[in-house]
Design a protein around this nucleic acid. Structure first.
Lengths: 132, 132
DNA sequence: CTATAATATAAGTGAGGATTTATATGAGTG
DNA sequence: CACTCATATAAATCCTCACTTATATTATAG
């Protein structure tokens, strides 16, 4: 199934428009650090502030964005508010992406080695082939 | 394996720092539209320009970012340059994310319906529980 | 009740990056 | 070769949003 869905993947505009806001949320470095830093734990805001070194209001702002995106949820416990992932599936997907980046990096490295080899280059045909 | 890795997922800073630039690339709406619009096909730049309605130079700029990120590759064919995904795995991951968003939307919708119900609200206890 | 701590929200600012305008580069044709 | 088309690159401009400062809100302790 996974293989067949991979082969037939299309990305209709409907799906694009759905994923765009999510990736905008995830595309901000500090926001992503906050999100990934949570891992599978519930953490008070003070923890997040200390862990990231960001300002309190900045953290609060980012948490709000994450919360409104539905990526994290918040629970008040006395004077503290604890934040955790709304669904660990998101972390799994991000982990997939990391793994893919790693694997690709490995592939690219070995690919680059092959490229480094053609010192005896046919100057016309393969050069115009691949734009880098 | 997938289940166990889900339960034990941690996101060390090393991984965070790896994924951040990738998500920055993917976090720009038009860039994502370009990427997803490619699907599994190789397309000339003119196609992309027409499909997205963006300016030529803007498209060119975004393609360069995608190319340098390693997400797409380019092949010159005569006067045209065709762009396609470097690896369909990325599309699969994005598709996973979309599916997750959809599934969560369904869950959120039914959750929101339950929330819409407490018109007879106990004003203290459940309100201070969950921060929205 | 007052004071303090934790956190959120509002408003202002400036930097990063998307987009535009101008121009350069590469490929093809006559 | 000159010209045209496709695309990339450089520089300038614009726009979005992250971050900061100021303040408000909520919870707790004495």
């Amino acid at each position: 199934m996974s293989a067949s869905s991979c082969l037939t993947i299309k990305f209709p505009e409907r799906d694009q428009e759905r994923i765009i806001p999510a990736l905008k949320v995830l595309g901000e470095p500090n926001r992503l650090r906050i999100l990934c830093g949570l891992g599978l734990e519930c953490r008070p805001v003070t923890d997040i502030i200390n862990a990231t070194g960001l300002g309190q209001t900045n953290v609060s702002f980012h948490l709000r964005v994450l919360r409104e995106a539905g990526f994290v949820r918040a629970e008040r416990r006395g004077p503290f508010i604890y934040y955790c992932l709304a669904d660990s599936e998101l972390l799994r997907i991000l982990h997939d992406l990391t793994s893919w980046l790693d694997a690709r990096q490995t592939a690219v490295t070995s690919d680059a080695e092959q490229r480094a080899r053609p010192a005896k280059r046919n100057s016309a045909a393969p050069r115009t082939r691949e734009v880098t």
